[in-house]
Amino acid sequence: MTNRHPWMARLSEYVDGELPADERLALERHLETCADCRATVTQLGRVRDLAGTLADREPPRDLWPGIEARIGGAARVLPFGRRWTLTMPQLAAAAALMIVVGAGGAALALRGTGTPVAGPVAVVAPSGDPTVIPATAGAASYDQAVTSLGRVLTEHRDRLDPATVRVLEQSLQTIDRAIARAQEALATDPNDAYLSAHLAETMRQKLNLMRRAAALVAAS
C-alpha cells in the first residue's frame, strides 16, 4: 500500500494546503498517475467540507434546571421577583476587606482591581458578633459586579429615557455619598461593628440599584 501510495499519509495535509512547496510538487506529480490517491484527495476534501456544515443541535431535554440547582444554592428571592445570589455575607466580606485595607486605602479599595470573595471570610454580623460566614460561590466579586454593570449602563444608557437616566444617576450619587461617609467614619473607627455593617448595607443598595438599572436596559 505504502509502496504504491507513498503519499497516502500526507494527503490531508495536502488537502489543507499545509505541505511545503517541494513536497506538494512531488505529491502532485504522483497524483497525475495515481487515480486512487486522486479519489482519496477528493473524499478527504469532502469530509472536511461536510464537517464545516454540521448544524448545532439543541439538547434533547432542558438542561437549565440542573444548572440552576448547582449555581443557585444561595439564591434568594428579593424584591421585584428577581433572583440574586450575591448575598449579604459577600457584601459584608467586601466591606470587611475594605476595612482591612485601612483608613488611607478605603476609598481606593472601592474602585480597586477587584477582590475575589471566595471561601470562608470573617465578617462582622449585624448583631455585632464577629462571625465566620462562608461566602457563597458567586459569579464575581462586588467590585467586578459594580464595574461591569457600570460599563453596560454607560454603553447602553441611550436605551433608557433621559429622565430615567437622570434619576438613576442622582440616586447612585446619593448612595456613593453615603458610602463615602461611611468609609470616612470607618477610617476614624475601624473596629465599629455598626459602621462596617452599614457600609455593607449601603453597598448592597448600590449594587441592587445598578442591577435594577441593567435589568431595565435588558428589557428595553
Binding site: 433572583r83 459569579a139 459586579a145 461591569s148 447602553h156 449594587l207 442591577r211 436596559v217
Partner: peptide
C-alpha cells in the same frame, strides 16, 4: 428586544441567575 450578551453578562456577574 433580545438583550445584548453584554448586559446579561454584567447582570450575571452581579449574581443574577435569570440573566445567566
Amino acid at each position: 428586544a433580545v438583550p445584548d450578551d453584554a448586559v446579561d453578562v454584567a447582570l450575571a456577574q452581579s449574581g443574577d441567575t435569570q440573566a445567566f
